[in-house]
Design a protein around this nucleic acid. Structure first.
Lengths: 220, 220
DNA sequence: GTCAATAGTTTAGTATACAAAAATAAATTT
DNA sequence: AAATTTATTTTTGTATACTAAACTATTGAC
């Protein structure tokens, strides 16, 4: 068995939270979740610790664990940090990136373009993720790579929704090309800049969506 | 009770590892540690998960948990990322820092100077830590602050040892003054630069110590 | 003597039982 | 009737019991 059972349950509960079955502030019941997944409280409590560490849930001693969706401000802060982390990766990668990796980046970009042509957000999202992960790896600093991956994963649900913004995918593609060009040129400063902006825009778009959402909810 | 028992045990085991009672690759015995702290396996296993998340220990399914001291390369990588994180904090802080916080930084610096005069490495270390934490906070991005604190904590044992390098404390003080000046000036680019260098030097010094250590160990 | 197979031991993972704390409901007092 | 106290019920945290997997040692075949 290559995947641990508790990891599977952790993923499943994560899904439940993100899909909205549990909303913000809800208490997660050890016993009910145990029954649901056919296990006892012990492994569920293990899973809770994992979720606590990943920030999806908060643990209050002798009280229980509660769903803790990050506030819009926290999400924006995370995007800001993500932009900086990716910028660093780009700056480092510009010095060390290999020809093979450049090819891989261009390949990922082609896949992104194809996804746009086929209007497949899912495919675009996947290849876009790959594109960025290549850059993390090419930073040459595996600790930095791990940190970037961690934050990328945590921001995944929020990055996803802002693909719906009209024309975002096409604009994103153009930015990808600038990033690759900077890396090809070995222009560290430019790689840093283009990557930072590219990611920072996601935070901006997210903010924009929030404002729109706010308008609609207060319209009634 | 403001502090949880498992947190206490986690800290204690962390200490044991750092003090050298357990060395790299050692397996941590759930039962023995339970007896040692007068608890059963359950809370010890909880603590293991915490330690796994903090990276001090590695968990192999159905095998157990093993002490995993980071390799010199990993430590250098972490210092490199720390330097970048602090540089970002400095850049952000330069725009937003308050007069009170400037005062606090200068106060921390005075305490550092006093510690040097009294040749107290412990005091220097403590006030130095405070100095940096003020800058994390003044970044105005609390997520960034948390991430910086996390990595600062993880690097603590390695930062400590390189204070022994002759003259390091005095040089460090001079750098602190440059950092404060950049922040007073609101010079973001300079704050970024001075902070990055200031932290990066710690990695360099650590590397230097490693080489020295290597020489001595192969001399026999 | 070396290797393979198997029995026995140890240890991780999980379920359950129990104790203590918190939340809730009921009862008593003001 | 409101508030405080007391009793009841949940629920968390921990200990223990059990299961299954991994390690060790012994035996047997070549």
């Amino acid at each position: 068995m290559t995947i641990k059972k508790t990891d599977f349950i952790a993923e499943a509960i994560e899904e439940l939270i993100l899909k909205g079955e549990f909303s913000n502030g809800d208490r997660l019941d050890e016993i009910k979740l145990g029954e649901r997944f056919g296990v006892s409280r012990t492994p569920i409590r293990e899973v809770f610790q994992k979720l606590t560490m990943s920030g999806l849930v908060e643990h209050f001693p002798k009280r229980g664990v509660f769903v803790r969706q990050p506030s819009p401000i926290q999400i924006l802060e995370m995007f800001e940090v993500m932009a900086e982390l990716e910028a660093i990766c780009g700056r480092f990668a510009a010095h060390t990136i290999s020809d093979e990796s450049i090819d891989m980046l261009e390949n990922a970009n082609n896949c992104c373009q194809q996804a746009i042509d086929e209007k497949s957000e899912t495919d675009y999202y996947r290849h876009n993720t790959t594109f960025h992960q290549i850059i993390y790896k090419e930073s040459g600093n595996s600790f930095l790579e791990q940190e970037a991956l961690r934050l990328q994963k945590r921001l995944a649900p929020f990055r996803r929704i802002q693909l719906h913004v009209r024309g975002r995918m096409k604009q994103s593609m153009r930015e990808h090309k600038l990033i690759v060009q900077a890396l090809v040129d070995g222009d560290a400063a430019n790689a840093e800049l283009t990557l930072r902006d590219h990611v920072a825009i996601q935070g901006k778009k997210f903010q924009y969506l929030l404002v729109e959402l706010e308008k609609n909810s207060t319209k009634t």
